[in-house]
Computed example of a mutant assay.
Amino acid sequence: MKKVTSDTEQQSLFWLIKTNSGRLSEADIQNFKIWLKASDDNHKAFRKASLLWRTLAYAPTLSEQPKLLEPEKKLRKKRQINSWYAVAASLVICMFITLMPELEQPTAPSEAEIVSTLELRTAKDEIRQFTLLDGSKVWLGAGSRLLVKLGSSSRHTQLLIGEAMFDINPNPQLPFYVQAGDADIKVLGTIFEVQKRNSGILVKVAKGKVRVAAQNQYRYLEMNESIHFEKNKVLPLPSKINPESFAQWRSKRFHFVNTQLKDVLHKLNRYYKSIIYIDDPSLGDIPITAAFQLNQLEQLLNSLSSIHNFSWHKDVYGNIHIKTNESEISF
Rank of each mutant, 00 (worst) to 15 (best):
K3Q: 10
V4K: 13
D7M: 11
Q10E: 14
F14D: 01
N20Q: 09
N20E: 04
N20I: 00
Q30K: 08
K33W: 11
I34A: 13
D40V: 13
D40A: 15
H43V: 09
K44F: 09
F46W: 12
A49I: 00
L52G: 08
W53R: 04
L62D: 14
P66M: 01
K67S: 15
L69K: 12
N82S: 09
V87M: 05
V87Q: 08
A88G: 07
T98V: 12
L103A: 11
E104C: 04
T107Y: 04
P109Y: 02
A112Q: 12
L120M: 11
K124F: 14
D125G: 10
I127P: 14
Q129H: 15
T131A: 14
W139H: 11
L140Y: 01
R145F: 08
V148C: 03
S154Y: 03
H156Y: 13
L160A: 07
I161M: 09
E163L: 03
F166V: 03
D167Q: 13
P172K: 05
P172E: 02
Q173F: 07
Q179H: 12
A183K: 06
A183W: 01
K186E: 11
V187T: 14
V187W: 00
V187G: 05
L188S: 04
G189W: 07
E193Y: 06
Q195A: 14
G200C: 08
I201F: 01
I201Q: 00
V210W: 00
A213D: 03
A214T: 00
Q215S: 06
Q217G: 06
L221A: 04
I227F: 00
K231P: 07
K231G: 01
N232D: 15
K233S: 10
L237C: 04
P238K: 00
P238E: 07
P243Q: 02
S245R: 03
R250G: 06
K252C: 11
F254L: 07
K262T: 15
D263W: 05
V264R: 01
V264M: 08
L268P: 10
K273G: 11
S274V: 01
I278S: 03
D285A: 13
I286R: 06
A291Y: 09
Q293Y: 05
L294H: 03
E298L: 13
L301R: 08
N302H: 14
S303K: 15
S306V: 10
W312I: 06
H313W: 13
K314R: 14
D315T: 05
Y317I: 03
N319H: 07
I320S: 03
T324C: 10
N325F: 01
S327V: 11
E328R: 09
E328Y: 06
I329Y: 03
I329E: 15
